[in-house]
């Protein structure tokens, strides 16, 4: 693969009337990445995706997909891009298979049934193939939306909250499928409010807040940036030595959560407990997760 970034965004601004929805976004996603775009409701994730997809025009700045400018070279951009929209939309006139065939046709593909069948198999849609879209449940409609985005095997796939309203089983099969696509070389960008999904899947993360990128790094680095680890303890007697009081993060129903700056701090904590003749009933050391990072980043900025 070349060195052209899959997505390149420079100083992107978007105004909706008086609302400044995107305030100078700079972003580069390399080919083959599995990238997460995170942020609270209204942060501007969908707006950014819409600009890349040509559904919305930027107020200023530039955006390119696989080296093609999204405005000047819109046909090449859209061929390179598969987008799963956030809104649960469908065409009530058609069956699942008709919809997928029509969508293939829009991308200039005529005989696409083999690939359509493969997508349907991965998304567990084969038994719904001839059902009218109107008669499908919400989660099933979401699967069809994912399928529609993939009919033309786009090198860059953007999924805007693909797992909202989707059951556990499909989430797992969906992510297995997307992961396989990523291994085959497709670039994946996803937004989700389930941060554990992003943490498990994505190699890099951007966090958006009010139209600005407030964190952009590899998932590993972001996790490392939170030095603090938590030690959960249940003890008898239920009385923490005074020397540990400064470490207490929370105490609920007999469960202490203590903050450790380094693993080495464990030694000291355990020593103090031993000296005070306290017995440990239950102990767990938790790793910081992306949610902790998210909360910290959103709180700080």
């Amino acid at each position: 693969m070349g060195t052209t970034p899959a997505i390149l965004v420079r100083q992107l601004h978007k105004h909706f009337g008086s609302l400044h929805a995107l305030q100078g976004i700079d972003l580069e996603v390399q080919q083959g990445e599995f990238f997460a775009l995170l942020g609270p409701n209204g942060a501007g994730k969908t707006t950014l995706i819409s600009i890349l997809a040509g559904l919305t025009r930027a107020s200023s700045g530039s955006a390119a997909v696989m080296g093609h400018d999204v405005v000047k070279d819109y046909r090449a951009t859209r061929t390179a891009l598969g987008v799963v929209p956030q809104e649960l939309v469908y065409d009530p006139f058609f069956t699942v298979r008709e919809g997928l065939r029509i969508q293939s046709g829009y991308f200039g593909l005529r005989h696409n049934d083999d690939w359509i069948d493969e997508i349907m198999a991965h998304l567990d849609l084969l038994d719904k193939a001839d059902r009218n879209m109107r008669t499908l449940s919400g989660g099933m409609k979401r699967r069809v939306l994912v399928a529609q985005a993939l009919v033309h095997k786009p090198p860059v796939i953007i999924l805007d909250e693909p797992t909202a309203g989707v059951d556990v089983e499909l989430r797992q099969s969906l992510w297995a499928f997307i992961r396989k696509l990523n291994e085959d070389g497709h670039t994946i960008v996803l937004t989700t409010h389930y941060l554990e999904e992003a943490q498990a899947l994505c190699n890099r993360v951007a966090m958006l807040k009010q139209g600005r990128i407030v964190a952009l790094d590899s998932t590993a680095n972001l996790l490392k940036s939170i030095a603090e680890r938590h030690l959960c303890l249940r003890i008898t007697p239920d009385a923490l030595p005074a020397g540990l009081a400064a470490r207490v993060v929370s105490y609920t129903e007999g469960l202490y959560v203590l903050a450790l700056d380094h693993y080495a701090d464990m030694e000291g904590v355990l020593a103090q407990l031993r000296e005070s003749g306290i017995c440990i009933q239950e102990m767990e050391l938790t790793q910081p997760d992306l949610e902790d990072v998210f909360v910290q980043v959103m709180g700080a900025s």
């Binding site: 559904l55 819109y74 065409d91």
Partner: peptide, 17 residues
């Protein structure tokens, strides 16, 4: 109908001129 139900995106996302 396509605009109100939102499925107009199916025609706006592909490279149709």
């Amino acid at each position: 109908q396509s605009k109100i139900t939102g499925n107009i995106v199916f025609m706006l996302l592909p490279p149709l001129s």
